[in-house]
Design a protein around this nucleic acid. Structure first.
Lengths: 339, 339
DNA sequence: TTGTAAGCGTTATCAT
DNA sequence: ATGATAACGCTTACAA
């Protein structure tokens, strides 16, 4: 009888270890997954064989057999931005504790890119799928609804849907920023948008700002930078708005701290007196925010906390527990020198 | 005959699609992997079935069967730092083109953490394993040597070893920085270390600096900050060294731009005249470097390029081509106002 | 162009 | 405590 083999047996497998240790494959499997169910002598022989063969278990095979993969997939708008990086780092670290790996993709604020990533990720049958924001394509919604894997939406809240929610209200952030500046006596307050068009959470913050402005009988206005790089975009907004003859704003709320920092640095370089010439308010509390001159007033989102809680929920799910459906976190307004 | 099933059939499989389309499973498999080998009518029926069932192929199963997983695993010191984030972003984007996903872990400059990550990653049988730097534990070296997967080392160079290399010489970076400051007429030049102790590449840069200093008959000196956060650490170094009565340095080379930016901002806030009171030189060319006052002189590593080239090499390997073993890239010295 | 059978490396199930 | 066997969902090898 000819045994058909697909390829030269190269990778060392459970069977190789078992043969060397003089036990069956399943015993080696138990050695890894339920060590207490293996007696002391076989344990020692298996340990030696694993060591000698430098055996690495094939996790894809294990996951296929057990329908339980120790991977978590996350889609973020971008990897290199400071905000999501903190969430990612915290998530990755939290997952590492439970032996989970992180599969990552970036959407660049595009729901189509997100959809492609979600589709590919579901193919890996991850222990959980973590998304950023609650804005998805219709097809993504369908994938999520049909998915057998738990889905965690972060950085936003939308109660009553299937995914677990860990986030906060962006609209409230916008309201808080506007109210803070109004309380400081400003009236001509303008919102500077992110040049990344698909940032729908930033639009929510703008909506919150607009809501408060209108409640005070003031007209909400926004500026849209053309520069793609956030520091440049912030500088562009600062220069354009400070130079305005009519309707010159007294205070600016930026879609995020990168923009606000760009504005601050551009203002400083142009010799502006800040915040007298222009009050500047951000969102994110990036690392530089409290170091700049003037230091940046901003709202700090619970970026790390989101990652930590998401990791904790994945571990809970792994233990068969059911995490709470809605985790509402709060942002902190940090009043500094710039506004 | 009783068919034993392990779990309630939940996930829709290739077989479900095949049944609905009235073809065999292998034909559906070909529909995805070799569409040209499937006739037009079956193709249409399969397309409809996939759509109706919202079918998502199980990539773990496919990878197990074909021994070819479309995942690339990368270990970086940290995800949230600006440098590696650029490499990661570029790698992730480049891989997405070829339909590859990115598995990620961070080592925090610890070779033990790196080893754990490498071990777990090899279990996923990735198309390639991408590492940062050439410093590994002995066990990691052994895992790499035995691995059937291609390994790509980035951000450094060490010819003659098994892994493909995409990087540059950190020692040369240190030499260039020192030579630049010497050419500017400085003599008391000091190196400020990263507070992350395991950053061996930074130590290489320091060695290059020391080499040039000694060649000029000058004594290399270093400062070790205690603060963990890089901006704070840089500020700490600036304050401590500027206040020194004896041996006060004229110029500082920082292990990276975060430290240098922290120093610049602290100096500015303290009312120092920069670069007259202290010349500052960095490494990394982070986004803020050219925006600060004074703008930061630094050396720009090819961070994005490394990610792009790594992705390109993975795609090459996927096509059965053999990428060049050594890709030496160059850093660019960016002379600005701070030194 | 399409199908059958076997195999990828592991774990669940049942038996001893 | 240990093992035999089937199953996980897919693709390779070969056949028609």
């Amino acid at each position: 009888m000819t045994v058909r083999r697909r390829k030269a047996a190269q990778r060392t497998t459970l069977a190789d270890v078992a043969a060397m240790a003089g036990v069956s494959a399943i015993t080696v499997s138990r050695f890894f997954n339920e060590p207490h169910r293996v007696g002391p002598e076989p344990t020692e022989r298996i340990r030696a064989a694993v060591e000698a063969l430098n055996y690495v278990p094939n996790l894809a095979a294990g996951g296929l057999a057990s329908a339980h993969n120790r991977v978590v997939a996350m889609v973020v708008p971008n990897i290199s931005g400071p905000i999501f990086a903190d969430t990612l780092q915290a998530l990755s670290d939290g997952l590492a504790v439970g032996g989970y790996q992180l599969l990552l993709a970036s959407s660049y604020f595009s729901v189509e890119a997100e959809e492609r990533a979600v589709r590919a990720f579901l193919g890996w049958n991850p222990a959980a799928l973590v998304l950023t924001s609650r804005f998805h394509s219709a097809a993504t919604e369908r994938l999520i609804a049909d998915a057998t894997q738990p889905v965690i939406e972060t950085w936003d809240l939308q109660p009553g849907r299937k995914p677990l929610q860990i986030g906060f209200s962006h609209r409230q952030v916008g309201r808080d920023a506007a109210q803070y500046l109004l309380d400081k006596g400003h009236r001509r307050i303008q919102f500077v948008r992110n040049s990344a068009a698909g940032d729908l959470s930033a639009q929510e913050r703008e909506a919150g700002y607009a809501e408060v402005m209108e409640a005070h009988g003031l007209e909400p206005r926004h500026f849209v930078p053309t520069a793609a790089a956030p520091l440049e975009a912030g500088a562009e907004a600062m220069k354009a708005l400070a130079a305005r003859q009519r309707q010159r704003p007294e205070a600016l709320i930026f879609a995020n701290d990168n923009l606000a920092c760009g504005a601050l640095l551009a203002g400083q370089r142009a010799g502006m007196q800040l915040p007298q010439d222009m009050a500047v308010f951000g969102f994110g509390d990036y690392a530089f925010a409290d170091k700049l001159l003037p230091s940046l007033s901003t709202i700090r989102p619970p970026a790390r906390q989101i990652g930590e809680l998401a990791a904790a929920q994945v571990l809970q799910l792994g233990r068969g527990e059911q995490p709470s459906a809605l985790t509402e976190l709060v942002c902190e307004l940090v009043a500094r020198e710039s506004a």
